[in-house]
Simulated assay, not measured.
Amino acid sequence: MFCRVLGVVLCSTALTVYFASHSIGAVVVTTMACSLLLQLAYFASVLFLIWRYGCVSRVGQRAEHFGSCKEVGYLPPDFDEVTNESADLIQRDKMLAISLLLP
């Protein structure tokens, strides 16, 4: 899917530049620049997902820390909400990262 979209974007850019300038050199340079920008955007999105996963993991660790309060006999009122919500976020982010990395 990603490769098809990449091919369509690069071909449409090349055709647009060719019909506008009638220069093969401009087509090659513009297509390479477009390809580089798309790769940078893809890399940045993967880094963003990794960063977001790290934030969600820290939220999960905090929830586990609050879980240790059970031993003392104190339980925060929204303990179940925090642990269930963070587990759902971690699972959703894992699936999103896997779907973005697989073609």
Rank of each mutant, 00 (worst) to 15 (best):
M1Q: 09
M1G: 12
R4H: 13
G7Y: 07
V9C: 07
V9P: 01
L15Q: 13
L15C: 12
V17H: 02
A20C: 09
S21V: 02
S23H: 01
I24A: 09
A26D: 14
V28N: 01
V28F: 14
V29Y: 10
T31S: 05
C34L: 04
C34F: 06
S35L: 14
S35G: 15
L37E: 07
L38W: 03
Q39S: 13
L40V: 13
Y42P: 02
F43R: 11
F43E: 06
A44Y: 06
L47S: 05
L47Q: 09
F48E: 07
L49N: 11
R52I: 02
V59E: 14
V59R: 11
G60I: 00
Q61S: 02
Q61L: 10
Q61R: 05
A63I: 04
A63W: 07
E64T: 13
F66H: 06
F66S: 03
G67P: 00
G67T: 01
C69N: 13
E71V: 04
V72E: 04
G73A: 07
P76N: 02
D80A: 11
E81A: 12
E81C: 03
E81L: 12
V82Y: 12
N84C: 02
S86K: 03
D88F: 05
Q91L: 08
Q91Y: 07
R92E: 12
M95F: 07
A97E: 03
L100Q: 10
L101V: 09
L102M: 10
